[in-house]
């Protein structure tokens, strides 16, 4: 069984005002098939955790470790992490002018599997996933994320999640900016991916709304760069009622 372990992770970024510490000792273990929700106020470091797992060069790891089945992730390049089975659904997916969705998906699938997918099955898989995500087939020939609406970009992220079949996926505020219909479609896609591949999920969100459609096994409250409290799904309900004030009162806002 696969396991993703984050151990005592400290991360900083360079800003105009100098080095800024963001993560201050994060410990988290995700087993295959588990859904962990990370909730927290703005600026608490949730997205930093997501980008650090994926290997964005902006974030500097001061200490700690991220292990995927015992292998150190932090020494891997960004693409090696993806090939090892990690996936990040981004909050703000990037536009790639001149590169069509079809070309991009095939190139990524080939890179991850180490060989080109069998054409007929691949085309069928892509088409079926797009239909389920209510993506018009014209998307396939459009340039990646270029001119996509917010909801279309998020669906395109989930399309990749379904097709690339990672072992662990981090969803960075995938719910933000989605209307309820788009939220349902995206959530169904995530649930389907989990059913089909049994992947582990780290669901980063500011709101409890998405947790109505994707049921977490564990909820972690993130405050000031570390996990302040954790529990089962009932913790999300409590946050829905009380908000984050209880945590913010205890720690200075960073």
């Amino acid at each position: 069984m696969s396991v993703l372990e984050i151990k005592d992770l400290h991360v900083s970024v360079e800003t105009d005002q100098g080095t800024k510490q963001i993560l201050r000792g994060v410990d988290l273990t995700i087993n295959e098939g588990e859904i962990h929700a990370i909730m927290g106020p703005n600026g608490s470091g949730k997205s930093t955790l997501a980008y650090t797992i994926a290997g964005h060069p902006k974030y500097h790891v001061d200490s700690g470790s991220i292990l995927l089945d015992g292998a150190e992730v932090l020494t891997m390049t960004v693409d090696e992490r993806a090939r090892a089975g990690l996936f990040l659904a981004m909050q703000y997916p990037v536009e790639i002018p001149g590169v069509t969705v079809t070309n991009f998906l095939r190139t990524a699938k080939t890179a991850i599997d180490g060989e080109a997918p069998a054409i007929r099955h691949w085309i069928k898989d892509v088409r079926e996933s797009m239909v389920r995500l209510r993506m018009d087939k014209s998307f396939a020939e459009r340039n990646v994320n270029e001119g996509f609406s917010g909801g279309e970009k998020k669906r395109n992220e989930i399309l990749q999640l379904e097709l690339l079949k990672p072992r662990f996926a981090v969803l960075d505020e995938t719910d933000s900016g989605l209307d309820v219909d788009a939220l349902k479609i995206v959530s169904e896609g995530v649930n389907r991916a989990k059913e089909n591949t049994g992947l582990g999920l780290l669901l980063i969100t500011h709101y409890t709304r998405i947790l109505r459609y994707i049921k977490p096994d564990f909820v972690h409250v993130f405050v000031d760069g570390r996990i302040a409290e954790q529990g089962g799904p009932e913790l999300a309900d409590r946050l829905e009622d009380e908000g984050y004030d209880r945590f913010l009162a205890e720690t200075p806002v960073g």
């Binding site: 790639i96 001149g98 991009f104 990524a108």
Partner: peptide, 29 residues
């Protein structure tokens, strides 16, 4: 664009191929 590079690499595409994809896309217009 480093963000384009990061996006493509985060999908498993190696740096050399990611660069090639972006430049080819840029000029193919």
């Amino acid at each position: 664009d480093d963000e384009q590079l990061f996006y493509l690499q985060s999908r498993g595409i190696g740096e050399v191929e990611a660069r090639r994809l972006v430049v080819r896309g840029f000029l193919s217009e």
